[in-house]
Design a protein around this nucleic acid. Structure first.
Lengths: 212, 212
DNA sequence: CCTTTACCATACGGTAGAGTATGGAAAACC
DNA sequence: GGTTTTCCATACTCTACCGTATGGTAAAGG
């Protein structure tokens, strides 16, 4: 019973944010634990964490439960490892997208721009916010939010704010981001067009980010 | 089969936002449809819409399913009527808390102040945002959000903004509110103390609401 | 007083998913 | 080449909930 063993992707990393779902394993080899994790994350992105059920997931992958319970001890274990995997991936994304640019203003703008048409990672986050009360999700969301707000706050400090003001402004800025995700999720209408979104984004930047 | 009949509270209005749950019906008379609706809304506030299940709800009320299926045709019907009832209640709250004050600035500040320690109605809203993808919840949330943003936008227009800017600023302001709710729901730590919250609120007001 | 009608209890059938048990096949190992 | 490991299929059990069927009781209406 090797379930819950350290996830060493045996076949190939099959990194997140790529679209090789079925193609990766097209009848050829056997499945690994990370294959289940990635598929679970896709389901989370599409239908939320409550939709991560063992049997439907197995059907979706063209396989049976027998495989699952060899790799994992329980559904809870799958969720745990999937969330850990996602959190690592997100932390790496954060360093990449916000750690590169030297100008703090560009960093903040880049943060907002990454929201609209971002890949699987952000969709998962949006879906997880809907399950913020879930005992396994809550600590993950808290860490991710803290990490992101810390980065944002740092940018505001570099723009001349003192610690207290930067902290408040980071919380405010991140709330705007969360509120945007919420409106995005609940709106059935086509939401905002591209130009409307751009105009709104300009307004947000103008309101929240000091000129220099 | 009188289920789905117009909810005429036969016994007593048992209005929302009061705490007479068991006390209202302490062995005495029979239950009405609105009793089920109110209890459902309490469950939504506590554990979300997925926790609204017929049998657990009946157990919670010290009764059996037999009663429920006399008043309602299905679980779906209960949700529908509960949401309708809540939406009406919320619309009335909006007119009351934002329609009274003449000064638009005070109206906006009052809006934010009503968030922190508000009763059942706001808890329900916070819980519903977690189920924004639910087919019965989505249209309700859309209407409520539009209604509230319209009020906020009107206040900004009265403060001198043109239509486009007021619209954007209303969306931005409402996003801050939604983001606050989200952070509230997901934080396991004691969140913010009273003074921290006041300081943050001052910052929000200063940032979002023009001086005069 | 006797019959409706309103309301609720009890018992049933049906579904969906979580785990378990066990066997089978294919590859790896020696 | 035979044994061991790895991986998956099949066939259960168990729980929780939805909805139905039906019978019982107390109050209201005639």
């Amino acid at each position: 019973m090797p379930y819950d063993s350290p996830t060493a992707n045996r076949i190939g990393s099959s990194d997140l944010d790529d679209t090789v779902s079925q193609a990766t394993r097209n009848k050829r080899t056997t499945l690994s634990a990370s294959d289940w994790e990635n598929e679970a994350l896709r389901v989370i992105a599409e239908k939320g964490i409550a939709a991560v059920a063992v049997e439907p997931l197995a059907r979706r992958m063209g396989i049976t439960k027998g495989s699952f319970y060899w790799h994992f001890s329980s559904r809870e274990s799958l969720l745990e490892q999937s969330l850990v995997s996602w959190e690592k991936h997100d932390a790496r994304n954060l360093s990449l997208s916000l750690g590169e640019l030297s100008c703090p203003r560009d960093r903040l703008i880049s943060f907002f721009r990454h929201v609209s048409r971002e890949g699987l990672t952000h969709q998962v986050y949006s879906a997880l916010t809907a399950s913020a009360d879930h005992p396994q999700v809550k600590p993950v969301l808290d860490r991710v939010a803290s990490r992101r707000m810390a980065h944002i706050g740092q940018a505001f400090r570099e723009l001349g704010m003192d610690d207290a003001e930067a902290g408040h402004h980071a919380r405010l800025t991140y709330s705007v981001y969360l509120g945007f995700l919420q409106l995005q999720r609940q709106s059935q209408a086509p939401a905002l067009s591209s130009q409307q979104f751009e105009a709104y984004l300009d307004h947000v930047i103008e309101t929240l980010i000091p000129e220099h």
